[in-house]
């Protein structure tokens, strides 16, 4: 038994839209840093240790 063609096409279309949805909060966060000038990764001790290596 196979998935019908229309369902297959919708799955592919919606999977592509999902890539945008997954990325959206990350992109919005980066945009907010750009607007506000914040660089939180530079203040975090873990990030500082990694950067100094």
């Amino acid at each position: 038994m196979k998935t019908d063609k229309i369902t297959q096409q919708r799955i592919i279309r919606d999977a592509l839209i999902s890539i945008v949805l997954y990325a959206l909060p990350v992109l919005l966060m980066l945009l907010s840093f750009r607007i506000s000038g914040e660089r939180p990764w530079k203040q975090h001790p873990q990030a500082t240790v990694k950067a100094s290596r």
Partner: peptide, 8 residues
């Protein structure tokens, strides 16, 4: 480990 702990 904890590489993204800085994320607000």
């Amino acid at each position: 480990k904890n590489i993204f702990a800085w994320v607000p």
